[in-house]
Write a protein that binds this DNA or RNA. Structure first.
Length: 469
RNA sequence: UCCCGAGUAGCGCAGCGGUAGCGCAGGUGACUGUUAAUCACUUGGUCGUAAGUUCGAAUCUUACCUCGGGAGCCA
């Protein structure tokens, strides 16, 4: 007999059908009338289905009455209209087969409120809770939406490498990748200035290698051949960041578009976010209702508002003007040329406009070397999409496609152009204007669900001092 | 990494110098087409770790560890 999932059984169309279900017990309620109610969940949806187990079952006394929360069972029975309140259908069990008990004395999850911190310490069991089941389903929907968005627009999905040899991809501290015995690392012998340095020529790749901090530079290679591409994979930052918005291992989506300027980049980012939010609301209705009710009472309203309205677009210079004139007291004073602080971004997106804000044309000194220099010589074609609570959810730019300008910028940033010979080749041979951005998957899940800590929107978070499971 | 705050029963918390408490969960019993069921009784704790002050420390001091909030870095 083919297995049915709980979400199907909850539909009234299932009434009258005989089904086989399997899942985990959420709770059992006994009636002295000679039967028990079992709430069964299999992760297919938020809700559990109520199983009616009568005393007539051969294993009622011996097994059914011992079923506690967390036990796994297989049920065969008829879907019937429920006479009770709270559900429209239920399953009248013909048989209840116990697959595995969960000892209520030691099973950590019980019918009660539990903190996110505690659940994080039992990451192997937390997907069995309503909250983490819903997070998993919404995260999955977001991933599907990301692929759908780009695939339907003709973007090619490019798998860029996890292990990289380019030393300065731009952002942040990198994790080292090596097969050296750390107790006995080979050193360069002989005479000369390099004597005593680590001899990476003896390492696995014959040179120093790291975990990637971005697939952008590689994506640019494919965009300048195939026009529109995107990467979507894990990214690593060895920063000692201890916040609710940072992970050492996180997933990032990075589209890269040839023949595209910053305007097109911003438009793509806006359409992209709206599509994701819309898909989640359409396809994860009950999960989103749960988040709206139990996690953050404003998420649904906020998402609807965003989908229905245009993002605010202001230049960095305008943003600084607004911040200077707003009368708000900031811990960090505002002046043209500074990087916007969290409190400044929050003011813009949470107080002033109350929706996503795209800030563009930042001072060149606070942005990466590859961003296209404006004619004013002071600013670059960079853009950040800021959203309430989470802050920067997307960072992007139009790339510098002029070889001479790019080389100058690299030198100004103390980078050796020879190290980037292949990156420069893209400008030397058939260069084109192009642009792209990076979207943090976890920050998107955070924003959509209202979950307060980024460690609770990825199954197994990696952060400083945290690599369990 | 910096600034605050917190670590007490399986979980959520109170106690803040004088022999460790409450709620929930667990166990037992009662009751019921129940639904976070309800009611009664009940098991359960080297008070984060290490040192110190004191006649006496969960309570005061110091260091360390972990967690949370904020900041920096950023996605």
């Amino acid at each position: 007999m083919k297995q049915t999932r709980v979400h199907q059984v909850l539909q009234t169309e299932s009434i009258g059908k005989k089904v086989k279900l399997a899942g985990w017990v959420r709770t059992r309620r006994d009636s002295k009338g000679g039967f028990s109610f079992i709430e069964l969940n299999d992760g297919s949806c938020m809700k559990s289905v109520q199983i009616l187990a009568e005393a007539a079952l051969s294993n009622y006394e011996s097994e059914v009455l011992k079923l506690g929360i967390g036990s796994s069972i297989e049920v065969i029975g008829d879907v019937v209209e429920s006479p009770g309140k709270g559900q429209t259908t239920e399953v009248k069990a013909e048989s209840v087969k116990v697959l595995g008990y969960a000892d209520p004395q030691t099973y950590p999850l019980q019918k009660k409120g539990t903190s996110m911190e505690f659940l994080r310490s039992i990451a192997h069991l937390r997907p069995r809770t309503n909250t983490f089941g819903a997070v998993a389903r919404v995260r999955n929907e977001i991933c599907r939406s990301i692929h759908n968005f780009f695939q339907s627009r003709g973007f090619l999905y490019i798998n860029t490498p996890i292990i990289t040899a380019s030393d300065c991809e731009g952002a942040g501290q990198m994790f080292n990748v090596t097969t050296f015995d750390l107790k006995d690392v080979p050193r360069i012998s002989g005479e000369g200035g390099a004597k005593g340095d680590i001899d990476f020529e003896q390492d696995f790749f014959g040179r120093a290698t790291h975990l990637t901090v971005s697939g952008q530079l590689e994506a640019e290679i494919y965009a300048t051949a195939l026009t529109n591409v995107y990467t979507f994979g894990p990214t690593f930052r060895a920063e000692n960041s201890n916040t609710s918005r940072h992970l050492a291992e996180f997933w990032m989506v990075e589209p890269e578009m040839a023949f595209c300027d910053l305007e097109g980049d911003m438009q793509c980012a806006e359409d992209f976010l709206k599509t994701i939010f819309n898909d989640v609301m359409t396809n994860c209705g009950s999960d989103m209702e749960f988040f709206n009710e139990r996690i953050d009472k404003t998420v649904l309203e906020t998402l609807k508002h965003i989908v229905d309205s245009d993002f605010v677009r202001i230049s960095y210079t305008e943003a600084v003007d607004i911040l200077l004139k707003c009368g708000e007291k900031f811990e960090f004073p505002v002046s043209w040329g500074i990087d916007l602080q969290s409190e400044h971004e929050r003011y813009l997106t949470e107080k002033k406009f109350k929706k996503p804000v795209i800030v563009y044309d930042y001072p060149k000194d606070i942005k990466a070397f590859y961003m296209r220099l404006n004619d004013d010589g002071k600013t670059v074609r960079a853009m950040d999409v800021l959203v309430p609570k989470v802050g920067e959810i997307i960072g992007g730019s139009q790339r510098e496609e002029r070889l001479d300008v790019l080389i100058e910028r690299m030198k100004a940033c103390d980078l050796d152009p020879e190290e980037y010979w292949w990156y420069l080749d893209l400008r030397k041979f058939g260069t084109v204007p192009h642009a792209g951005f990076g979207l943090g998957l976890e920050r998107t899940v955070q924003f959509v669900t209202g979950m307060g800590n980024i460690r609770d929107v990825i199954p197994f978070p990696r952060a400083p001092k945290t690599a369990d499971f």
